[in-house]
């Protein structure tokens, strides 16, 4: 009764397991699937080390049950593509000293990937937006400057968008960036 059967696609591979209902998605990918790139820091949603993509959106895998992700498509840091923006992001992270011990890095890569591959973004995210989005991830080593620089480099922006711009819309369909500050 306390076991559930879960079935999901992880990094493109269909997996099916019987696990205790209380298994978090984090423990599932780490312990059941051996994908230890997803790290656990606080286990209550604060540090972002455990970020994974579920159906393309970033989530805290410590605050999601494996059972809740059943039926979904999950991408962990191991499944991020080795070409395009994510490859450039990895490269920029090392050049800008965006990591030291690396404990937080997988979480930052997932969070930044969601931002950088936002299909609905109208313009490149500016520094304010990048900082706001990354604010959900804690790094104890780098002081963040290098991480922000790396993400900005790959975003190709930095000076283009107006300051104070809101995070670009995702999943809202075309024209999602319309109306803050206006009446209907």
């Amino acid at each position: 009764m306390d076991h559930v059967s879960v079935r999901m696609t992880v990094n493109g591979v269909l997996v099916e397991r019987q696990v205790p209902a209380r298994t978090s998605l984090a423990d599932f990918v780490r312990d059941e699937l051996g994908l230890t790139g997803t790290h656990l820091g606080c286990e209550h949603g604060v540090c972002g080390a455990c970020a994974v993509l579920v159906d393309g959106s970033s989530v805290r895998s410590c605050l999601m049950l494996a059972a809740q992700a059943s039926g979904a498509e999950v991408t962990t840091v191991e499944g991020l593509p080795h070409s395009g923006r994510t490859a450039r992001l990895r490269d920029a992270m090392s050049r800008h000293h965006g990591l030291q011990c690396g404990f937080c890095t997988s979480g930052f890569l997932i969070t930044a990937t969601e931002l950088l591959t936002d299909a609905d973004a109208v313009e490149a995210p500016d520094e304010g937006t990048v900082r706001e989005v990354l604010s959900g991830n804690v790094c104890r080593c780098t002081g963040y400057q290098g991480i922000v620089r790396a993400v900005l480099e790959v975003a190709g922006g930095g000076a283009t968008a107006p300051s104070g711009g809101e995070p670009a819309a995702r999943g809202g369909g075309p024209g999602a960036a319309a109306t803050a500050g206006q009446q209907r």
Partner: peptide, 29 residues
């Protein structure tokens, strides 16, 4: 509330407020 065009248009106050809830990953869930 932040990204859906209909919600943004109809309840802009909630769009503004929702941005302050935790972080994107929290708001996705």
């Amino acid at each position: 509330f932040e990204t859906d065009p209909l919600l943004r248009r109809l309840v802009p106050l909630a769009a503004d407020a929702a941005r302050h809830i935790g972080h994107v990953a929290i708001r996705n869930q």
